[in-house]
């Protein structure tokens, strides 16, 4: 269920915590297996993480459903997480999110027909001086404009 490569990555995290405290690595373990699974989690993966870290499965489920960054349904290859919180809102994020939805013909929370992109409205991502902004993968995109969004979308494959 969990690939050897993923196990190696998880083990790096496990090594950071005291012996017997491997459950400290659960958030990263979920992140790693989610990434490997194309961006979302399944019950089987959560079970596998629970087994690997010797945790009760429900405890893994609690973590997986508590934190925002886990997806429980399939997502697009790229997830555009668009901040709509106050600093971004004051700088026009709502208008840009509408633009994005229109351009991709996709509602927030949904996947584009080609399954390439899904769009999610999120709360503050901590880059308010660069508002409006969004996150795609590990990358932040700041000071967004319609033009900048066009360029970013063109770069997504």
């Amino acid at each position: 269920m969990i690939s050897d490569q993923a196990k190696k990555e998880i083990d790096i995290w496990v090594a950071k915590y005291p012996e017997g405290r491997q459950s400290s690595a659960v958030m990263q373990a979920l992140t790693i297996v989610q990434k490997e699974n194309g961006g979302s989690l399944t019950n089987e993966l959560k079970q596998a993480v629970a087994d690997y870290l010797e945790m009760p499965t429900i405890s893994v489920e609690e973590v997986a459903t508590f934190y925002e960054n886990y997806n429980h349904k399939p997502v697009g290859k790229h997830v555009i997480r668009f901040c709509h919180n106050i600093s971004c809102m004051l700088n026009g994020s709502d208008e840009l999110i509408s633009y994005l939805e229109e351009k991709l013909d996709v509602k927030t929370g949904e996947i584009s027909k080609d399954r390439l992109v899904s769009v999610k409205r999120v709360e503050c991502l901590g880059a308010c001086v660069g508002a409006p902004m969004c996150q795609i993968g590990d990358q932040y995109y700041e000071n967004l404009t319609k033009k900048r969004i066009d360029e970013i979308l063109d770069g997504l494959k």
Binding site: K16, V63, Y67, E68
Partner: peptide
């Protein structure tokens, strides 16, 4: 010293929620 990564929960900025999270629980 080690870096630990969160997973998206504002409440983990509260110091005891952060500790819970660092222990691998919900914050």
């Amino acid at each position: 010293l080690y870096s630990h990564l969160g997973a998206g929960a504002y409440i983990c900025g509260e110091e005891t929620a952060l500790l819970e999270s660092l222990e691998g629980k919900k914050g």
